[in-house]
Design a protein around this nucleic acid. Structure first.
Length: 473
RNA sequence: GCGCCUCUAGCUCAACGGCAGAGCAACGGACUCUUAAUCCGCAGGUUCUGGGUUCGAAUCCCAGGGGGCGCACCA
C-alpha cells in the first residue's frame, strides 16, 4: 500500500515545534534561506495553493499559522498532498526555510494524515458570520474565528492570573456546595432539582456567599471561590443562566478594603493581559487606572435627576419622584427599595465609570452591615463600569440577632416577591459563634472579561452559552 | 413574556412580484515561489416550515420555528 500514513493507524503524534515558536525563533531569517533545522509540526491545513509541481499550505496549530513549502521532488505522495481538504489535520516533518519573498516555511520532507474532515469548512476569508452557528458549533468557531479563540484564551489567562494574585495575598481557594437546600447569598430565582436518596429538594446555588462566610467563622480568614452560579432568569446580551463569579472574603476588612482589592486586581489583570489600564470599550475610552471614583448612591441619584433625594425624605415624596421617572411602584416598597429603583432607573446606566457606588439601603441589602454613620443604610458598594454592574461588595453583617431579623423580614416578603431570601437558621447559628469584622466581594468574571476583551455579548465570553436546543440536529 | 429586525448552495452574499445567481469551498484539469494565488471546466437548492393572495411568490399576507436587538427580570 502506498500513500501517507492514515488516521486509522496513528494513535499518537509528537510535534517538536509550534507555529508561534518557529516565528519567534526565526524572525531574523532572510528571504531565500534554507536551514538544516528539521522540525515536526501538526495542525489543520487551512489554506492550500497548488502551483503545478510545487504547492503551498498554511498549517494552523494552537499557537498560530505557518506556511508549508511542498515541492513535488521533495515531498512524498505529492498528489495526495494536493488532494487534501481544507480543515484536514496533518503532521509534517521538514526543514525550516524562507521563500524568495521571505515567508517563513517548513519544507515538507514527510507527512501524514491525522484526521480527515468529512464536512466542508466555512469560507476561508469571511469565516462564520452567523452568530447562531458560532455559538452552537463553537468547535468550528474556534477554528475559523481568530478573535473568538483569542477571547477564550484570554479568559483562561485571566482566571489563572486572578488565582495567583489572590494566593499571593494569602487568600485560600475553597469549594462550597453547588447543590444547596436553601439558596442564599443573592436575590434571584433558583433552579430547582431533587435528590432521590434523601428525597430532598435542592437548589443550584445563586451565590456561594453564605458558605464562604461560614468558613471565615471557622477561622479561614481569607477565602475565595471561583465558580459557576445559576439564576433562573431571562437571557440577554449581558445575562446567561449560568455564569462565573469570583467571591472573596477577608476577616478584619471593611468595604473600603474590598474596593481597593477590586481596583487593584482589575488593574493588574488589564496590565498583564493588555499591557495597559487605559482601554477602549465599544469604541469609547475606559480608564481603569486606580484609584477609581467613589460616590454615594444618594448623591449620584440626586445629581442625575437634578434634585436632592434621600432615604429619610417623606415616603410619599419619594414615591412621587419614582412615578415621575417611570419607576413601576409597588405598594409594599419601602423608602430603601424606592431609592434603589430610582437610582437604577435614572442613574446606573448613565455611569460609564469605573465608579464605586457606595452605601445602599438596608431594605435591599439583607446581608450587609449597618452603615457606621448613616441610619437605614449599609456599607455596601457596587462597581459600575460601562453602565453595568461589575461587582458587589460590603462590610458583612456579623450580628446574629440582626441577621435573623433581616432574614425574617425577607421571608415575610415571599408572598409577593419570589426573589426574597429564606431564613437560613444554620447560617444564623454560625454567626452566633462569632464572625470577626469581615468584608466580602463578588465579581462577575464574564462581565469583567467582556470589558477586557472588548466584546458586547456575554455569549462571546462563554464557550457554550445557553441556547434553545436545535430542532433537527 | 411583549415589540422590532432577520432566515436563499457547505460558507459569505445577490436576486425584492416574472427562468434562483455569484465568489469561496467541493469535484475534473493547467501551472516549481504562492500569500484570500491565478486560469479553464463541472456540479451543487424543500429560498426555515405550513397555509393564503396572485396568471405567477425567495419576494406580499397569516400562523409556527430558529436567531439578533430592545423592553421587562437580573449580575
Amino acid at each position: 500500500m502506498s500513500g501517507p500514513a492514515q488516521p486509522a493507524d496513528i494513535y499518537r503524534f509528537e510535534p517538536t515545534a509550534t507555529a508561534a515558536g518557529l516565528a519567534t525563533k526565526h524572525a531574523e531569517l532572510e528571504p531565500g534561506r534554507e536551514t538544516d533545522e528539521s522540525v515536526t509540526i501538526a495542525g489543520r491545513l487551512m489554506l492550500r495553493r497548488g502551483q503545478g509541481k510545487l504547492a503551498f499550505g498554511q498549517l494552523q496549530d494552537a499557537t498560530g499559522r505557518i506556511q508549508l513549502f511542498v515541492p513535488s521532488d521533495v515531498t512524498p505522495y505529492f498528489e495526495e498532498f494536493t488532494a487534501l481538504n481544507l480543515g484536514d489535520w496533518i503532521g509534517v516533518t521538514g526543514d525550516v526555510m524562507t521563500t524568495r519573498k521571505g515567508e517563513l516555511s517548513v519544507k515538507v520532507r514527510d507527512w501524514c494524515v491525522l484526521a480527515k474532515t468529512q464536512r466542508q469548512f466555512p469560507e476561508k476569508w469571511h469565516g462564520i458570520a452567523d452568530v447562531d452557528t458560532r455559538y452552537r458549533q463553537r468547535y468550528l468557531d474556534l477554528v475559523v474565528t481568530p478573535e473568538s479563540a483569542r477571547t477564550f484564551r484570554m479568559r483562561s489567562a485571566m482566571i489563572s492570573l486572578m488565582r495567583r494574585w489572590l494566593e499571593d495575598r494569602d487568600f485560600m481557594e475553597v469549594e462550597t456546595p453547588l447543590l444547596q437546600p436553601i439558596p442564599g447569598g443573592a436575590l434571584a430565582k433558583p433552579f430547582v432539582t431533587h435528590h432521590n436518596a434523601l428525597d430532598l429538594e435542592l437548589y443550584l446555588r445563586i451565590a456561594p456567599e453564605l458558605y464562604l462566610k461560614r468558613l471565615v467563622v471557622g477561622g479561614f480568614e481569607r477565602v475565595f471561590e471561583i465558580g459557576r452560579v445559576f439564576r433562573n432568569e431571562g437571557l440577554s446580551p449581558r445575562h446567561n443562566p449560568e455564569f462565573t463569579m469570583l467571591e472573596t472574603y477577608a476577616a478584619y476588612w471593611d468595604y473600603s478594603d474590598q474596593m481597593r482589592l477590586t481596583e487593584d486586581l482589575t488593574a493588574h489583570l488589564a496590565t498583564e493581559l493588555l499591557g495597559t489600564t487605559k482601554l477602549a470599550y465599544n469604541d469609547r475610552e475606559l480608564d481603569l487606572t486606580p484609584p477609581w471614583r467613589r460616590a454615594t448612591l444618594t448623591e449620584l441619584t440626586s445629581t442625575a435627576i437634578g434634585q436632592p433625594v434621600s432615604i429619610d425624605m417623606a415616603i410619599d415624596d419619594l414615591r412621587a419622584l419614582c412615578v415621575t421617572h417611570g419607576v413601576d411602584v409597588h405598594p409594599h416598597y419601602g423608602p430603601g427599595k424606592l431609592l434603589l429603583e430610582l437610582y437604577e432607573k435614572t442613574t446606573e446606566h448613565t455611569l460609564w465609570g469605573p465608579v464605586f457606588v457606595c452605601d445602599y439601603p438596608k431594605e435591599v441589602s439583607p446581608l450587609a452591615r449597618d452603615h457606621r454613620s448613616q441610619p437605614e443604610m449599609t456599607e455596601r458598594f457596587e462597581c459600575i463600569v460601562a453602565g453595568r454592574e461589575l461587582c458587589n461588595g460590603y462590610s458583612e453583617l456579623v450580628d446574629a440577632t440582626e441577621q435573623l431579623a433581616r432574614f425574617r423580614d425577607q421571608a415575610a416578603k415571599s408572598d409577593y416577591d419570589d426573589e426574597a431570601m429564606a431564613v437560613d437558621a444554620d447560617y444564623v447559628r454560625a454567626l452566633e459563634y462569632g464572625l470577626a469584622p469581615t468584608a466580602g466581594l463578588g465579581i462577575g468574571i464574564d462581565r469583567l472579561l467582556m470589558l477586557l476583551a472588548d466584546v458586547s455579548s456575554i455569549r462571546d465570553v462563554i464557550l457554550f452559552p445557553t441556547l434553545r436546543p436545535e430542532q433537527n440536529a
